[in-house]
Design a protein around this nucleic acid. Structure first.
Lengths: 206, 206, 206, 206
DNA sequence: TATGAATGAGGATTCATTCAT
DNA sequence: CATGAATGAATCCTCATTCAT
């Protein structure tokens, strides 16, 4: 179990490189739709050689899942702020979630992509799972604070689904310009939030 | 009326071939992720040569949109039945929609695919638009019957989003077997339906 | 040898159809570079079915050669006018030739194409041959009128080459806009014409 | 200077591979019409895999332009020799140019191809431009030595065009065997050269 | 005779991944 | 450990031509 200092250093460097790579990926995601970001793009952008990337990530999927995880962490941080804010409403929570994913579209696309087409790597499954669990827990925790009585597990699930639904359904709403689209989504977030507020207050106990 | 019988035959045969192709596509969509179905796959599966497919559909997108349109027509027929049924509840409507897309997963994946990646061809945009409009109108009509007073446009939009959200979010819920997943989705449908019932009854007039 | 009236009618209709087809081809050539004009394009444009076109022309090459022949006839007609004009100069002749091919670029492209890559069909070879011969004869005739003494066969050959050379070399002169290009070509035509005038006057007798 | 030897080796190998590819392309150009040489042909002929070719040339056009550039360099070297030769005549210069392109037909076909169809890539435009500029400068320099007084820019342009014209017009002169064709072209070169000699001597000052 | 249908062959380009150094 | 090199497998789409009716 010794060797630790050296191993730690190694591990640190390793993380640093991984960071470099994922950061590069994220930069690219801002510029183009995530399915168009190739491994070579990431190599070029990160300054790390293409084949070296495979030393840090076994395959493309793992890399993308890692990037997605980062995104999830960011969302979770933002949600935590809302949750800690005693005056926050359901709408605040919903708006935070949706706004982030509107502004960080590639994360949403990745998430949806993996939800739709699944994931091959078992490690990836686990990570995806975790992301979802944490989010649901956050929603649940928030709802429990609003109404400590009821059981909100199912409501949290529905809430998560509803917000995803808004994003997926209207993000490319054809014939509207992007600003109108966002306005529309936020209106729907508001509608949805009201409904959930009531449900939560009523303390759904299924 | 001249030549009509002959022309009709020709037209019929043409449709028949188109059917062959789209059916093949649908079979493939069940078997693998949507973006991985290639034109050659469809050619092989349909028994029609690759180049011939382009005599029936100008490009891949048009073919896919045609397949999606078929699915949409089927859903709309089912929803119409529910809408005509005087005793039907919001939950019935929601369940019909979701069940169909659970059972006909490829249609849902197609729909989501286009929602995510958008569409290039302008004819396709129009078709997609129409599908969405019809569905929203159906929801709206149903809600209006339940409560003729209120304005339900926004509610219909939210409803559509919510159901899509359930499907996208939980259809691949990792670590559950397929039966549990479906049960869970139906539970969420039920939760969602209750919420929308209330909202509709209250005659949301935003 | 009888049957003539009927056969003649047939022949006439045949020619009429061929005309329809070549006309369509020419219309397309005005719109896009000739190598991009496909047989189907021609079928659509002419209103004659794709396979029927093959009843009138054994293959694409023959059709194109026929179109080229038409173009050649037009040039020859124009040149004839100049030749008949007693006051016409070598420069007039050159300018007529070059201007026509600038304005009817597809003919020039076809001509060059066949000159470069040759021709497979033996009938085509013959037609191409004839076109060239006629043009050379026209130049020769004109030069002979200017100076009846000398032998101008070689000069005519050189003249033809020189004009073609101007067209091929500067038609796509990079970095210039089309108007400048044309101006430049005409300037070169003028230079060339002066040189040939002298040569002709001197009665080259090689 | 660090690592230079290694880098140099790398660079050398890279060049070597590029050479392999371009050489293969040139071999193919001798065998079939220029536009019919496909990337796969080149891959097969060079023994390098199709996709690897794209590691050396970003696209087909760049590869072709590179091949053309090679040819141009060779011509320019030959012309330079003539230019440096104090006793050389215009006919020597013309004959050198034309002979080279008769013997190295693929280069002429490439040049003509790009003159006809133009070029898409901006880097290619620049390279093509350069080739042409250098040749024209060479002609101009030679003419200036013969007659230091006059301005020969236009004459050089005409000269270049005239020689190209001879090549394009008679290289496939139908019905003649190749030897006769070459003899004919050289005769025309001679005619042309005489004319240009006079023009140059007269010190054209347009 | 006219034509709708069908298609084989081909074309440029992309990309995730492996491997030898 | 890092990486340059190499590539097999795909992908969408085009087109001249043939053939059965």
């Amino acid at each position: 179990m010794k060797q630790t200092p050296f191993a730690k250093l190694k591990e640190k460097e390793r993380k640093a490189r991984q960071n470099l790579i994922v950061n590069a990926a994220e930069r690219l995601f801002s510029a183009k739709p995530f399915p168009k970001v190739s491994m070579r793009d990431i190599a070029d952008e990160s300054g790390i050689s293409l084949s070296s990337i495979y030393r840090y990530f076994p395959d493309q999927e793992s890399l993308f899942i890692e990037a997605l995880t980062r995104g999830a962490n960011k969302i979770q941080t933002r949600l935590d702020k809302v949750i800690k804010d005693k005056g926050a409403t359901v709408e605040d929570l919903a708006a935070t979630f949706v706004s982030f994913l509107i502004e960080n579209d590639p994360y949403f696309r990745m998430m949806t992509h993996f939800m739709l087409d699944g994931v091959l790597n078992t490690a990836s499954v686990e990570k995806l799972n975790r992301i979802e669990r944490v989010l649901l827990n956050q929603f649940n925790a928030f709802f429990s604070r609003l109404n400590p009585e009821g059981s909100h597990r199912l409501t949290a699930h529905a809430f998560f689904a509803a917000l995803n639904g808004i994003l997926i359904t209207y993000r490319n709403y054809p014939g509207r310009d992007i600003e109108d689209v966002h306005k529309h989504m936020k209106q729907l977030v508001s509608v949805m939030a009201s409904m959930f507020s009531l449900t939560i207050a009523s303390g759904n106990t299924r």
